[in-house]
Amino acid sequence: MLATKKEIRSFQNEKSNCSLRILTAPVLAIAGLLATIVPSLAVTDSYRNDYRVCAAQLLSVGVTPQAASQGCAKALRPKELSTCVAQIKKQTQINPADAFNSCSQARRPEDLAACVVGISKGTQEAVNPAALVYCGRSLLPVTFAQCVVGLRKEIDFTPIQALDTCIDGTDQTISIGAGSTPQ
C-alpha cells in the first residue's frame, strides 16, 4: 500500500504539531511559574510599599503606633497621609496628633499640608492651630492659603481676619455688561 501525497502531508503536519507542543509546554510552564512568583516578591518586603512608608513616617514624627496603624490602613493613599503630617510637624509647631487628625480627614492631604505650612509661615507665628482648622474646611486649600497670605501682605489684617475673609463662601452675584440684572 502506497500512501498518497495528502496522507503524507497530514502525517508530517501532525508530527510538526507534536514537536511544537513538546517545545512550548515547558516554556509556558516556566512563564506561568514566574508570573506567580514575581507579584509575591513585590509584596513581601519593599521600601516602595506605601503602607510601610506611611507607618515609618508617622512613627518618626511622634504619632502613636496604634493611631499610625489605623490611619495608614484606612487611608486611600497612605503615603500622602504621612507626608502631610510630616510636613506640618517639620515646618510648624503644630502638634503631630492634631496634624494627623486633620490630614486623615482631608481629601487632598498634601494640599492641606501646603496650606497649613504656607499660612503658618506667612503669619510669622510659631503655633497657628487655626490654620489647620481653616485649611481643613477649605475645598481648595492651596488657593485658600494664597488668599490668606496675599491679603495679609497688602492689608493690615490679623491672621483670624484674613482666615475669616478668605473662607467666606457666600454666594455673590456678579453683573456682566450694562443692563444685566442680578437674579
Rank of each mutant, 00 (worst) to 15 (best):
V117H: 03
P182E: 13
Q87V: 00
T44C: 07
P26L: 08
C103S: 00
R48N: 15
I167N: 04
R137G: 03
L28S: 11
L76N: 14
E80G: 07
I167F: 07
S104A: 14
D50C: 06
V133I: 08
N101P: 04
I176E: 10
A130T: 01
S175Q: 12
A126V: 15
K153F: 06
I88A: 00
P141L: 04
L23A: 14
A25I: 11
A97M: 08
I119V: 05
A67G: 03
R77K: 15
P182W: 09
M1F: 08
V127P: 04
E110S: 09
P26M: 09
R52S: 06
K121T: 05
G169K: 07
Q57N: 14
S16A: 11
L28G: 14
R137W: 06
G118I: 00
S82N: 01
K121F: 04
S180C: 09
K90G: 05
E154I: 15
E7Q: 09
T4S: 15
Q124N: 13
N49E: 07
T170W: 02
K79T: 13
C166E: 01
L2R: 12
K121N: 14
D164I: 02
L112C: 01
D98I: 06
V142P: 01
A35Q: 07
A42T: 14
P141N: 05
A73M: 10
C72H: 02
R152L: 09
